[in-house]
Computed example of a mutant assay.
Amino acid sequence: MFERAVVAGVGLIGGSVALGLAQRGLARRVIGYDASTEVLREAEALGVVDEVRPHAGEWLRGADLVVLAAPMRALTPLARELAPFLSPGTLVTDVGSVKGGIAAEMEALGVRQFVAGHPMAGSERGGVRHARAALLENAVWVLTPTEHTPLTALSRVRALVEGLGAAPVVMPPDAHDSLVATVSHLPYLASLALTHMVARDERLSLLAAGGFRDLTRVASGDPRMSRDMVVENRAALREALARFRRQLDRLEADLDEPEELLAAACEGKRTRDSLPVVRRSLLPLRHDLVVAMPDRPNQIGVVTQALGAAGVNIKDIEVLAIREDGGSLRLGLESPEDVAHAASILRATGFEVRGRGQETGLAESKQTVTPS
């Protein structure tokens, strides 16, 4: 699709985009641009990019794709730095988590072939050393064109997103920012509040088990990047916080109404079990098989090797719980037939399994779709 692609900001997401461009044959040459020479050296040493550039300049005129992948606070300054050197036909997109300001900024800079975007993917582990093309596979990638976005540019960026293995979703910038405030930025603040409660009472830390760690996982993200993300979206986030407080007030009132609280709990379970809501029309279905894991070395390896040798393709894998006597492993498989086949193999290998959707001694069915 592109002769020369430039990834400006070679961190976790930028590095993953660069690897995806190369591994999927989308760009003939990938150039990494970053303010940190140390990051550039690491990216080049890891083979994430073909070439590195520490300064903007006339070399940018030869790029036919530029991906702005800097943290939120640095995104606008980065755009201003690169814009004077871009050719009129250069396709530009970004991966920032807030869209309201960047499109207006690019228009003011005279960059016409721009489509704002946000891949809903990431990790608590940052930096180019953790970049991988698979991070973007099956991820929802929101594109937020405005009335000034050329349709040809939108079409090309959509094709790029699909080429990287992600699922493009198009919506207005303000709609994106409102939705992300609820599903991403609000959970981050909630995680901070919960972890602060534990930090102020040592007794709580003794009882904070796996469920608490899962619930507060996003608090482990980079503090500065997370701060910049929520501050940039503070208007939409304040609205989400107001709705969240109303929900908490309602649940507090329900403590005196057990049947109302039960109804709320049932609604919560139904909603949680069906997440993410938009996935069924976007991403392939997965069929679950849960494997009880004894507390012995290399048990995950035994499971994956046994299924791989039998030709069963594991599409997704998740460690569900860890206890002193073992835990469990959820395998996302492609079809009910794969679930039955895998269950038979693992039982013969000595594992206890609990599948979903099978008649032969397995429990109820559940189809899930799991973004990378």
Rank of each mutant, 00 (worst) to 15 (best):
V10C: 15
L12W: 05
I13S: 13
I13Q: 13
G14T: 15
A18H: 12
G20W: 09
A22P: 00
R24S: 01
R24F: 14
G25H: 00
A27W: 05
V30R: 10
G32C: 13
D34P: 12
D34C: 07
S36I: 15
T37S: 14
E38W: 13
L40I: 15
E42M: 09
E42C: 15
L46A: 15
G47R: 08
V48Y: 08
V52W: 08
L60R: 04
G62L: 12
D64S: 01
R73Y: 00
P77A: 03
A83S: 06
P88N: 10
G89H: 13
G89Y: 06
T90H: 09
V95L: 14
V98W: 01
A104W: 08
E105M: 04
M106A: 03
M106S: 06
M106Q: 05
E107F: 14
L109F: 12
Q113Y: 04
F114L: 15
F114M: 11
G122L: 06
E124V: 15
E124I: 15
R125L: 15
G126T: 12
R129N: 04
H130E: 11
A131E: 07
L136N: 04
V142S: 02
V142T: 06
T144K: 02
T144I: 11
E147D: 03
P150M: 15
P150L: 14
R156N: 01
A159Q: 10
L160V: 07
L164A: 03
L164P: 06
G165A: 10
A167N: 05
P168R: 00
P168M: 02
P172H: 09
P173R: 10
A175N: 01
H176P: 02
D177I: 08
S178I: 02
V180P: 09
A181E: 06
S184Q: 11
L194V: 14
T195W: 07
H196M: 11
H196F: 07
M197V: 13
E202Y: 15
L204N: 02
S205V: 13
L206K: 12
R213H: 05
V218W: 12
S220E: 14
S220P: 08
D222K: 14
P223C: 08
P223Q: 04
S226Y: 07
D228V: 01
E232H: 04
E239V: 11
F244L: 08
F244K: 02
R245D: 06
D249G: 04
D254N: 14
D254I: 00
L255A: 11
D256N: 04
P258F: 10
L261G: 05
A263T: 08
D273H: 07
D273W: 05
S274R: 11
V277M: 08
V278C: 02
L283T: 11
L283G: 01
R286G: 10
H287Q: 03
D295R: 03
N298I: 01
V302F: 06
T304V: 10
Q305I: 01
Q305Y: 03
G311Y: 09
V312I: 13
I314N: 00
K315T: 09
V319N: 00
V319A: 08
R323F: 00
D325C: 00
G326T: 01
G326L: 02
G326E: 01
L329Y: 06
L331Q: 05
G332N: 01
L333I: 12
S335T: 14
S335D: 13
P336C: 10
P336M: 05
A340F: 15
A342T: 10
A342F: 08
A342K: 03
A343N: 02
L346D: 00
T349G: 01
F351M: 12
F351Y: 04
R354E: 11
G357S: 14
T368I: 07
S372F: 11
